[in-house]
Every structure is written in C-alpha cells, then in structure tokens.
Design a protein around this nucleic acid. Structure first.
Lengths: 214, 214
DNA sequence: GGTTACCTACCGACCGTTCGTTAGGCGATC
DNA sequence: GATCGCCTAACGAACGGTCGGTAGGTAACC
C-alpha cells in the first residue's frame, strides 16, 4: 500500500502512557479512536477499510489484527456513546427534585458527554438503521429520548414549563439543539463544555429575547 | 431483475396530472423524488443503484435513461434544497425591519422550506463533503449560515437579543433546533409547518420556562 | 382504420473497479 | 523465544455504469 503520510503514524499519544509488551504500534483502542474520527469525516458507509488504514498509517489487513471488522468498530463506538448518555440519566440530580431541574441536569450532562465523547456521539446521531448493529443503537437511543420527553411532560404538569407547546415537540426541539453541537463544536477553541451547556440552558429556558433576562 | 413488489410502481400520482406523450412510466422528476426518499432512508453512500431500482420498480439500467448517474441525483436534490432556502433570505421580511424580526422571518421560512422540501433538505443536512458535488453544497450552506449569524449579531448590537451568549454559538444552536426537525417530522400527522414554526419561535425567543410567558 | 415514423421507457448481460475480508509469513521488542 | 504488530497477496462479492436491443405509446399520413 506504499507508506504515504501516515496522518496518525505512531499511537503512544494522548491519555495514559500505555506501556505494553511486544512491538509498539496501534492497539484496539487507538484503532477505535481513529476509526470514529474518520467515520465522522466521511460517513460510516463512505469510509472504506482502505481509508481507515491510510489514516492509521498501516495496511488494511493490519486492522484485522486488532478488531474483527468494520462492524465491530461501529458497534463499540455506538455502545460507548450510549453508555455515557444513560449514565447521565442515572445521576442523582437527574432523578430527584423538580422536573425542570432534572431536565436541566440531563441537558447539561448530555452536553458534557457530547463534548467528552464527541466522535462516538456524533456517529450515534448519524446512524440510519441499515444494519442490525445500527438498529440496536437506534432502539437504545429512542429509550433515551422517551426519558427526556417524560421529563418535559412532568415539568408541564407541575407548571414549571410553558404549556403552549406540545411536550413531544418541545423535547425534540430541545435535544435537536443539543445534538446539533456535534456539527460544529471543536474541542480546541477555548469553549468548554460547561460554558456551552450554560449558554444552551439560557436560550432553552429563558429564550433569546433580551427583556426576559436573568 | 425479476419484477418484485415495485414499491412505487407507476408514477402518475401526486401533484399535477402530468400528461406526456409516449410510453407511460417514470420521468426524471419522479426518479429524483424516489431517489431523495431512499437516500434518506439508507444514507446516500449506503444506497446502491440496485436499491434505487428496486424502489422504482425497474432495473438499474432504466435509471440511466433518466439521469446521468447517482451523482446527478444528489446534485439536483441538494440544489433544490439550497435554492429554496436562499429564496427565504431574499424575501422582503428578511431584508427590512428590526434584526430580530428579520431573524424570525428567516427562521419561520426555513421551517416552511424544510417541511415542503423535506427529503431534499434532509439530504443537504447530512452531506459530509466526500465529493465535489457535496463540497459545493457545503459551501453554499455555509453562506446561508453566515447570513443567519450576521442577523443574530445585528440583533445583539441593537439590544434586541440577549448579549450574554456568543452570537456564533447562539445562531448555531438556533439553527441546530430548526435543522433537527428533519430527524422526526412526518408530514402526515396533523402538525403543519406554521404551527411548528410558531412553537419553535416561542421556545427560541421566550424560552421554555413558564414564567416568561406571552 | 391501417400503416409508418418516432419518441420514451425499459431489459439483460456484462464491464472494470472497489469493497470487506482472509491466509500465511516476516520483523521488532521485551 | 514469546509476544505482538504488520506485511504481501489474494479472494469472492458488490459496486456504479455501459451497451445493444426491445416494447409501449402518440400522432401524422394515406
């Protein structure tokens, strides 16, 4: 395949120092990390194993030493994202207190997860359900969405949230806003997850208009 | 290819009665309409010409009688969506009056376009820039986004929009909310474009919280 | 009311290429 | 020398696209 500009030649970068025995190079995790990035750049279906190999700085066949195939890379990435999102819904602040505060915590936590696991969540939000792996991820994602819709409904019932919008529509627009973050957020630009989540909360709960300030 | 459950067998449906001479069947427009739908269901890259042919109830080669190839179908769909969106920005209500009102008109009009041209706009929002056609569409879309960001900036400068959020972030979140509509909106369910646009405006400008009512 | 001309819609077979995946062996590091 | 990472070479299947030929339909002419 002719060694050409590896793009991500050696791993041994980021996170832990990772000391393994044997020949240095990629491992399953570093392959997954790069794969998720490339899947997002070109789309999952639009990414060939050859594309992936080029980004890793190895040949196609080397990838199969680390993972069983393209599908496994997708599944592991999607599971990672979903696990992190569901963890937010199990936090104490997401299960106790007024509905609107629980909703805000889920919102805030989702933004945090989205930023921390950006490539994986991005991939999750683009899944179309073509294969079994994708269908399974969509099912889990739908569960999450229902959880949020229920919070909005509770908030309306408690008089905390305006009742002149449909709860299903409101929750969808709300999370549309959150999810759209993956389309433009760049980690290295001085905008951290908490600032972003705060801006989002302000707009979502109090609106853009200047007079309704706080 | 053995005639199996055409899914969209004869056209001659919807819109105008369409009287053409010659053999009845599909034409370039009906092919485009079906293609856009299938592209959204399976993703552009995930859709083979064979998939398309099956959905049309014809063989692969018949498609090439109507269009030059898969790429042309994509280009025509994306252009359709972009043309409609830019038309909104040229409306009088988008160019005169207070910035916040112009912004609301663009918002409202975008929701309308999004609903009227759902499959084409959906496709546009999922483009990743893999090919030249996609890159060109992304460029045009970026122009549109800048236009909106400028409106938000103007609104802040005029004191009409809260100044405690970054204008770039605000406009992105705003249109993230709008664009997310393509992920769940179903035309045949009693929610029309204007109702939806109104709900969105309420949330966007006055917020979800009950007290800031209007 | 046949015949002819012409258009459009379509089929089946096939092309070259790229896809995801596999087999078996070599070299680096501890 | 055990472990691990990666290579070359190749596979069958699926891809987008091409080709020559065929069938359905309208309309003008006799």
């Amino acid at each position: 395949m002719s060694r050409t500009s590896p793009a991500e030649p050696a791993p041994a970068r980021g996170e832990v120092a990772r000391r393994r025995s044997g020949r240095p190079g990629h491992d399953a995790d570093s392959v997954l990390r790069v794969a998720a990035r490339v899947f997002n750049e070109r789309g999952y279906d639009g990414t060939s194993m050859e594309d992936l190999a080029r980004a890793l700085g190895v040949t196609k066949s080397a990838i199969y030493h680390h993972v069983s195939g393209k599908t496994e890379l997708l599944r592991r990435s999607l599971d990672l994202a979903l696990d992190a999102l569901f963890a937010v819904t199990r936090e104490e602040a997401s299960t106790t207190g007024p509905a609107i505060d629980r909703l805000e915590n889920v919102l805030h936590g989702s933004v945090r997860v989205l930023v921390e696991q950006l490539p994986h969540v991005t991939l999750l939000l683009r899944v179309r359900g073509n294969t079994e792996v994708e269908k399974h991820a969509l099912t889990r994602r739908r569960e999450f969405d229902h959880l949020v819709a229920d919070l909005v409904r509770e908030g309306i019932a408690a008089g905390e949230i305006r009742d002149d919008v449909d709860p299903a529509v409101a929750s969808r627009l709300l999370f549309g806003m959150v999810n759209s973050i993956v389309e433009w957020y760049k980690p290295d630009r001085g905008l951290d997850a908490d600032e972003l989540a705060d801006s989002l909360s302000r707009i979502a709960f109090r609106g853009l208009r200047a007079d309704g300030s706080a």
